[in-house]
Design a protein around this nucleic acid. Structure first.
Length: 548
DNA sequence: GTTAGGG
DNA sequence: CCCTAAC
């Protein structure tokens, strides 16, 4: 029905946090379609649906679609509701006559049903070839646009939305065997649009045949690279991309661990996202009251990166590694249970109910050690996922040995992935090289709320230096705080001004003394007024405290 | 490299 | 805290 295997299909997967502003959603779409120069207008309809995530839904009725503002409003009240999204591109591809076309809609809401309070949205839009013509030329592929091999149909195309996990499951069902790399078919490209925000795991795939399960690549620029012809370069792309990252990114990547703070999501299988395991009521196990013996063979440290000068000593390398490991494992650890790649979320289920005790299920049982800060879900690589893919997962995986162990609960570390730690001698100097490729994903720094004393120091510095000299503020008041950049200070000042302007009831976090907030407003007002006038005078008369 | 501002 | 334009 969906003709998904048809090589001439062009697919867009869109993964987004529904809190995303619609302006940004549209921007993302536009970026994608602009790659092919076909989009003239991006229009998005949102349709509110009943709150039954797994229920199949009827066709989209464009007329009933609600406006984005309506959706956004409702969403605040119930962040977990299900919704439909239909995006159309007005132009040569998808015309204004969308409502005339056969639009097949299947349920598309895939989200974390656990503790995560975010709803992740996954949708796929497929340009479906006309029913009357099943030939390869009737569809649209990425290469159609980049290479012009196939004429772009001018007729408006029907749009299909179906759920992405079907595809994931299909590929996961290949038993995780690494796909044949040479079998790259340019006509079978899945273009995945990842519209994530900082709290999401990027999930960008070019050709699932080539790459396999969702990988951990989350950068818009990279996506755009993929969207262009360069996707043919495959996974090596990221290196080139990485080199373009700013020097700062490299500089700070060391001090920014524990990194990969992004919340990841998991593609739940709708058929068993709530109940994992089909044999929960098997009476033979109940009557036997048997025990399940598990042997945890090893665990793996999640890959991480360090940068260190080649002139550094081995001792300092060891110390740096230890710091990184400590940072990752400091804090509370949580254990996740996976069965056949699916996370078991209901803690109250018995092993019997989940099917863990079932013999033929034991192979697929796995555990994750999750650092405290990564609670919102993970990409769980299917069993047998190539290491090059699991590396992107933000977790520590404990793979359970397949047979029921005979030696009790032995735990042995498999050792840190050495590739991640090799510092290569290059042209000399301070350049640190990471051996590991395509893993320099953007890493959000951890959140480090300002203490009251820090705020006080900031206020005092700004009072004297003004609001336009953040580097000086940094040097003056935060020179020894390596984790506070002058941009951080600037941002903090911004939030301080905002905090000072809102009512105390609306403020969050550690309370800032009102006296400090008053000084913030005073200094802000003063420098807003005097900045231009005193920009060249502040050197003689920087002490505004006396003036206030 | 810094600054300013939107996200 | 991130990103990026502008300087």
């Amino acid at each position: 029905m969906l003709h998904r295997e048809h090589p001439a299909h062009r697919r867009f997967f869109w993964v987004s946090n529904p809190r995303r502003q619609f302006k940004k959603i549209k921007k993302t779409w536009r970026e994608v379609f602009d790659e092919y120069g076909v989009a003239k207008e991006i229009r998005i309809w949102i349709q509110r649906l009943p709150d039954t995530p797994n229920a199949s839904r009827s066709q989209i009725s464009q007329g009933k679609s609600k406006r984005a503002s309506s959706w956004k409003k409702n969403e605040d009240h119930n962040p977990m509701f299900a919704f439909d999204l239909l995006a159309t591109v007005a132009g040569d591809l998808l015309g204004d006559e969308l409502n005339k076309k056969e639009t097949i809609k299947k349920e598309e809401n895939v989200y974390d049903q656990g503790s995560c309070n975010k709803t992740f949205f996954v949708s796929e839009i497929i340009s479906k070839p006309p029913v009357t013509n099943s030939g390869p030329a009737s569809g649209i592929t990425v290469s159609d646009f980049s290479d012009k091999k196939v004429p772009i149909p001018t007729a408006p195309k029907p749009v299909e939305i179906c759920k992405i996990e079907e595809i994931n499951n299909k590929e996961a069902s290949t038993n995780g065997k690494p796909p044949p790399v040479n079998n790259l078919d340019s006509n079978n490209v899945d273009l995945v649009v990842r519209d994530d925000d900082e709290n999401s795991c990027g999930c960008t795939q070019i050709n699932k045949k080539l790459i396999g399960p969702p990988s951990r690549i989350g950068d818009r620029r990279f996506r755009r690279l993929l969207a262009s012809k360069q996707w043919k370069n495959g996974p090596k792309l990221n290196d080139d991309y990485r080199n373009k990252k700013s020097f700062y990114k490299h500089q700070r990547s060391l001090r920014d661990y524990p990194f990969k703070k992004r919340k990841l999501y998991q593609f739940d299988n709708p058929s068993n996202s709530n109940e994992v395991g089909p044999t929960s009521q098997d009476p033979t196990f109940q009557s036997q009251d048997s025990h399940v013996k598990l042997k945890i063979k090893s665990f793996r440290v999640p890959e991480f990166f360090i940068e260190i000068p080649e002139t550094a000593t081995v001792s300092s390398l060891k110390r740096t590694v230890m710091e990184a490991v400590t940072a990752i494992f400091s804090g509370e650890l949580h254990v996740g249970v996976m069965l056949q790649g699916k996370r078991i979320r209901d803690d109250n289920k018995t092993l019997l109910q989940t099917g863990i005790c079932h013999d033929n299920k034991l192979d697929a049982l796995g555990f994750t050690l999750e650092p405290d800060k990564f609670q919102d879900g993970y990409v769980v690589p299917p069993p047998g996922t190539p290491k090059s893919l699991t590396r992107y997962c933000n977790e520590v995986v404990i793979q359970r040995d397949a047979p029921v162990g005979k030696c009790g609960n032995a735990i042995e570390t498999s050792g840190v992935d050495s590739r991640a730690l090799v510092a290569v001698g290059g042209g000399g100097g301070e350049v640190a090289v990471r051996k590991s490729k395509r893993a320099d994903v953007a890493q959000r720094r951890i959140r480090r709320p300002f203490s009251v004393s820090e705020v006080e120091a900031l206020v005092e510095a700004v009072e004297k230096l003004g609001t336009g000299r953040w580097r000086d503020v940094k040097l003056r008041a935060f020179d020894d705080a390596k984790h506070r950049t002058y941009v951080d200070l600037k941002d903090k000042w911004k939030t301080l001004v905002h905090t000072a302007r809102i009512s105390p009831q609306q403020r969050r976090g550690e309370p800032v003394p009102q006296e400090l907030l008053d000084r913030v407003l005073t200094a802000h007002g003063y420098w807003s007024y005097h900045q231009a006038k005193n920009q060249f005078k502040h050197q003689q008369q920087p002490e505004i405290c006396r003036l206030l």
